[in-house]
Design a protein around this nucleic acid. Structure first.
Lengths: 151, 151
DNA sequence: GGACTTTTTTTGAATGACTCAAATGAAAGT
DNA sequence: ACTTTCATTTGAGTCATTCAAAAAAAGTCC
């Protein structure tokens, strides 16, 4: 049912249904803010021959057809999410890069508008909350500086 | 007076005063959202022997002592600004990467707080408005696709 | 003002995330 | 099934940025 679901998503977007594409969608269900690398690792559990390049291609195509969205937090590698079109925002850990969804404080897109748009045609207001996640808070009191990378 | 001003800024931050550092600060006065590359080009006009690596070092040090701030918009290269500590936000052109300051819609930092902070210790709310700048709007109606890069 | 220590700058190489391109292989329309 | 179109693989390339060792300059103390 999840599998056919991924299939339907792809069909609905006018994309060809392939194993790698379905696997990437499935991976994102389990890892809601995964990097290309993390998705690749997850996909490799069931389809060990899928290349990282393919994951990048798939993510480009999914994002291009609006099935996924990419998040690019500061200098962390890009993350991808399935949750799309509901104008939510993100809480990002400055230390390990962990990401959590937060519902939009204001309302629907663009959810905020500047006083002066300087002539720009606005498409989106992106809100990123930066902070220290609970794990990193704990690490900072005990250890001195190891920086693991979480999802 | 601008020169001694840069000097004072550096002294005040406890940093050694060097030509490259003053030049980077001066460059940022004229280019308020410049990339390392753009700063390097500007600095080279007066100090042709300063290397790009030095510009990166200087920007790391200035940012580390709070004299500058780095902006990292999506997949555009990082930009740097002198305006610091006043919690303003940015309007970024999705096409050419041009950046404009916008005053904070809400108030002072963190200016927004999520409904649920998921245990994070929040430090900042970063708001990025994405849109098309006036130049790119014009380009899109006339030409078909050249994408210049502005500051 | 000259020695001394510490911090910067230079030079050159390395990294990491990501993209490009050509060749092979698989989907879907007829 | 046949053919066309699009995906995937492989391997190389790019770009912004960082690392590291050696040379040069800042600030400090007498």
């Amino acid at each position: 049912m999840n599998l056919s679901d991924a299939t339907d998503l792809l069909r609905g977007a006018g994309l060809r249904v392939t194993e790698p594409r379905r696997a990437v969608i499935e991976a994102l269900r389990g890892l809601p803010h995964a990097s290309a690398d993390a998705i690749h690792a997850k996909v490799a559990q069931t389809l060990p021959d899928v290349s990282l390049q393919t994951v990048y291609n798939v993510l480009r195509d999914l994002t291009g057809s609006g099935l996924t969205r990419s998040i690019e937090p500061g200098d962390h590698p890009a993350r991808y999410e399935l949750r799309v079109g509901d104008n939510h925002h993100h809480l990002v850990c400055t230390r390990c890069g962990a990401i959590t969804d937060v519902d939009c404080v204001i309302g629907h897109a663009p959810c905020l508008t500047p006083d002066d748009d300087h002539g720009f045609v606005l498409s989106e207001a992106e809100v990123t909350f930066w902070g220290l996640c609970t794990d990193c808070q704990a690490d900072l009191v005990t250890a001195s500086d190891p920086v693991p990378v979480t999802t």
